[in-house]
Amino acid sequence: MINKSQMNSLGQSLLNFWRSSIGKKLIVAVTGIILVGFLLAHMAGNLLVFQGREPMNDYAYFLHHFLHGAGIWLFRLVLLGAFVLHIVTTICLVRENRAAREERYACEATVKASGSSKIMIWSGLTVLGFVIFHIFHFTVRVDPDLAAMKDPLDPSRHDVYGMVIAGFQNPLVVLFYIIAVTLLCSHLRHGVASLFQTLGFRSEKTRVAIGYLGIAIAIILWLGFLSIPSLVTFGLLEDKGAAIEHSSHSTASLLKC
């Protein structure tokens, strides 16, 4: 039972919200929106690679310098916050959910659950692993060869264009990238439709559209993200004027990180 005195404390209310299953679900949904928004923007940025070196590197330069360079850190902070909150909350939920059924059925069956919905935690954790790898690969650039790439047109700035193409020369990297992005899209196929349900927008009228939206976003991101490594792998996207010679050895060593 709720009484008015409990209602008076804002802190108590927030704690209640965090403790409640729906409160946590809402956190997952809202952080999910932020992450999906980031993914769409990230993909759009990536696709600049097809425009050539200059637009791509201009874009990267802009990202690192808007608001005098503070913009990207603000952006990263929000993203990191959403990401961490998304993961911490879902792990809490999974633990609670496991505890809610102590003894499993001897004969297990489902009638409706989609394949993607059943592997959410695994697809999510794989994506987490991939994101860490991806940050070391392209953001922190632990590979000194990639880190040292300079834009041939403007050697004062980093050659993102060249780095992307060089980074996808290793088939193992590409394979991991394909697996991770596929799982990410599986995650989103359930996650996007799901966030509408959690936020309370799913109804008889919107149900079908929301289902398709989830699938559509998943497919768009899958095609968008995977077009680059696949075209690089099949040699359809080449760096005609590479700043440094690419070394497969260096990227392979990166995988060990």
Binding site: S21, E96, A100, T110, V111, A113, H190, A193, S194, T198
Partner: peptide, 25 residues
């Protein structure tokens, strides 16, 4: 809504992960 949801949580039920098995059965 607040009362029922809090009681539901206190009883040890899990959370909805939108798989709709419930609707199916």
């Amino acid at each position: 809504v607040l009362g029922m949801v809090r009681q539901m949580d206190a009883e040890g039920f899990g959370n909805c992960t939108n798989q709709y098995e419930c609707e199916g059965v």
